[in-house]
Amino acid sequence: MIDKAYELLMAASLGVMVIYAMLCLVRCIRGPRISDRVLAVNMIGTLTIAMVVVFVVLLGEGSLVDIALVYAAISFLAVILLSKVYLGIYKERKHEEALLAAKAQAEGGEEK
């Protein structure tokens, strides 16, 4: 009886979490800016951790918690890496634009 109830609860919550993850994926595809996409990926990571821990209780397998822990670490690292990389790219592009503008100005000055 109680096993049945547990199975039902866990299956239902897994289904709901999958639906939320799919909605987040939609946001990830539609997101107009980069931060929207990274944010959606972060939320999917959170939901995945919750799903892995649901599996721990559903299967009674204690060692799966380590996977959840490592997944948390990796999704944290991924977000940090992505935002750092995009900040770097943005700054580089700004720098190049400034260089080009300076060059154009210098050439314009010569023509005059």
């Binding site: 972060n42 951790i49 822990l69 948390a72 995009y86």
Partner: peptide, 29 residues
Amino acid sequence: AKILMVVIFFWLSAPVSSHLLCRLEIETN
């Protein structure tokens, strides 16, 4: 205990990642 450790780790790491994301958005927009 391990599950609670996951929660604590998550609560320590979530602010850092959202801070960096917010900083990315503020600085690039």
